[in-house]
């Protein structure tokens, strides 16, 4: 283990990752969204208390389901903002050619960027959820520490995985774009599609209770959208199957946690392979 850390600062992947983190920390959009995320997460948790004047905290399943609704919007959006100019930006500034003339493989470049951007997103979700969790544990006497920590860790882990899928979608689009503006435009469209349209359609189908909507088909539909897998993970993890509302229908998909995590990882691996092959075919 020690030897891994000793060599880490000199590995190109780590050098690229730390540069991306430095770059990302100076991106005002990212700081701005992280703050909004934190504010939303806190207000969802403590809004009840503000209204009633006393400390009224929602039950854990309810809280997690509202938090995941916020996160499902914010996390992919932040991931896109971090990643959209990764390649098109380097191309415009002439550094992509330069990097490729260095003793680096395309795989190392993608891995370095992904590592750096994932660390940034981990930081964002830690701020967004971690502070909320901490305050809950300090203020709310009714929350069992073990379960709360477990649920929030789960939340943060799945958020990072969700972020990685959108970071990679960002790379694919960035690699194929010739202008930054086009890249961000297309990515916002993809975001809109995955986060809003797809879900609306899916929920409508679930509610409509159509005869062809077999549980298998629902599971397939969930598997095809990383944001739905994410929702499902967090609803299943907290045992929200008994909640009221349409969201809980997703939680009843019957897919186990490990399968859901597996699906997100399949997305990440698939998108990594896609990004790498797009990079290899890229015209210089």
């Amino acid at each position: 283990m020690a030897s891994i850390f000793a060599t880490m600062p000199y590995s190109p992947v780590w050098i690229i990752a730390s540069k991306e983190i430095k770059d990302g920390l100076r991106n005002r959009w990212v700081s701005f969204i992280t703050l909004i995320f934190m504010a939303l997460s806190l207000s969802v948790t403590f809004a009840g208390s503000a209204v009633s004047g006393a400390l009224v905290l929602p039950e854990l399943p309810v809280l997690i389901s509202s938090l995941s609704t916020i996160a499902v919007f914010i996390i992919p959006l932040t991931a896109i903002l971090i990643s959209y100019d990764s390649f098109v930006g380097e191309e415009e500034s002439g550094t992509l050619l330069l990097l490729l003339s260095y003793p680096l493989t395309r795989k190392q470049i993608i891995a370095g960027k992904l590592l750096g951007h994932s660390i940034m997103m981990a930081f964002t979700s830690l701020l967004g959820f971690g502070i909320t969790a901490l305050l809950l544990l300090i203020l709310g006497k009714d929350y069992p520490v073990g379960i709360t920590v477990c649920v929030f860790s789960q939340f943060i882990l799945s958020s990072i995985l969700l972020a990685m899928t959108f970071i990679l979608i960002g790379y694919v689009v960035s690699l194929r774009s010739t202008e930054k503006a086009r890249a961000i435009g297309l990515l916002l469209f993809v975001w809109f599609l995955f986060v809003l349209i797809y879900d609306l359609v899916l929920l409508a189908l679930l509610v409509a209770d159509l005869s062809f909507m077999t549980p298998e088909l629902i599971n397939v539909l969930i598997a095809f959208n990383p944001t739905d897998i994410y929702r499902a993970i967090n609803l299943v993890a907290v045992g929200a199957e008994d909640l009221q509302g349409t969201l809980s229908l997703i939680a009843q998909s019957g897919l186990g946690l490990s399968v859901l995590y597996g699906l997100l990882i399949v997305w990440i691996i698939g998108l990594s392979i896609l990004a790498l092959s797009v990079f290899k075919c890229k015209k210089l």
């Binding site: 540069k19 430095k22 770059d23 415009e92 500034s93 002439g94 550094t95 330069l98 003339s101 003793p103």
Partner: peptide
Amino acid sequence: QLDIGYLPENVSFYEKL
């Protein structure tokens, strides 16, 4: 590649660094 130095045309580098 380690033994080649290259200056591309129109290189403007990372603005935020």
